[in-house]
């Protein structure tokens, strides 16, 4: 179980991204995080694996205090939390295989990893994970020769190398064509249902939330303004989250 208590993040320039966020996530949930751009979704997700240092508040994960971890402890925690990014964050010039392999870095000793030497198990793991996202034949091409949807699948395979208990997905489909959104989210759903991986996923489109999430929280100006089932988001809630001018749109 992941418990977020009174989480505050103030950036050095004075922007208050999070103003005291409280919520919890049970193991095996698919939690959607919604809200306008700038509402603090990315900051929240990055505080959970400490890519961003929270200003105050605590994050407890199965009785481990993530916010109190230091140095090596942070890396030990991070390697159990996979992350998928809006811009995929692949090394474009490296091969797909190398990008996937880099997901294993938290587990392997430093020196051999610097020489790109990995164990047979890890190499098999990479092959399996690439097969899982349907890219087994692309292992040795450069990442930037793949399409956007394929690149995001490489991103998922990289996260899977960590054998994560949680996956943080920061707008994983926002840079993709709407038609590709489902293919990516289906992989996340599959991992959530079949392997019991907890998924925290920030999303823009409400119909995707309805379709995939088991629960949703909404952020507005750094505060949680809604917490509940996706189906509970009615028109009034919607206006509350996105503002009076917003219109509901659907993607097929």
């Amino acid at each position: 179980m992941l418990i977020v208590k009174d989480l505050v993040k103030t950036y050095p320039n004075g922007t208050q991204a999070l103003k005291g966020v409280n919520f919890q996530v049970d193991d095996g949930e698919f939690l959607a995080v919604i809200g306008l751009s700038g509402s603090g979704k990315s900051t929240l997700l990055r505080c959970i694996n400490r890519l961003i240092e929270p200003t105050s508040g605590t994050i407890l994960w199965n009785d481990i205090d993530i916010t109190a971890a230091k140095g090596k402890e942070i890396r030990m925690i991070r390697r159990q939390i996979g992350m998928v990014f809006q811009q995929f964050n692949l090394v474009k010039r490296s091969s797909v295989y190398n990008n996937v392999m880099s997901g294993r870095l938290g587990y392997v000793p430093t020196f051999p990893s610097l020489l790109q030497s990995f164990s047979r198990e890890d190499r098999e793991r990479a092959a399996n994970n690439l097969a899982m996202v349907g890219l087994e034949d692309k292992a040795h091409v450069r990442a930037d020769s793949l399409s956007g949807g394929q690149q995001q699948r490489v991103g998922i395979a990289r996260a899977l190398m960590q054998e994560p208990k949680i996956i943080l997905a920061d707008e994983p489909v926002a840079s993709l064509d709407p038609v590709l959104a489902h293919s990516i989210l289906k992989y996340l759903e599959q991992l959530n249902k079949e392997r019991g991986i907890t998924v925290l996923c920030s999303l823009h489109f409400l119909d995707l939330v309805h379709r995939y999430a088991t629960r949703a929280i909404a952020l507005k100006d750094g505060l949680v303004v809604f917490e509940g089932l996706p189906s509970e988001i009615d028109d009034a809630q919607f206006k509350e989250i996105y503002g009076q001018d917003a219109e509901r749109i659907e993607i097929s």
Partner: peptide, 27 residues
């Protein structure tokens, strides 16, 4: 981006340089 991604996998400083920085700067 890649620096962030490698940090998120739990990679250490040297691994970040090796996997996220060096491949980008070669050309």
């Amino acid at each position: 981006g890649p620096v962030e991604a490698i940090e998120a996998t739990g990679g250490n400083f040297l691994q970040v340089i090796r996997y996220a920085v060096i491949p980008q700067i070669i050309p």
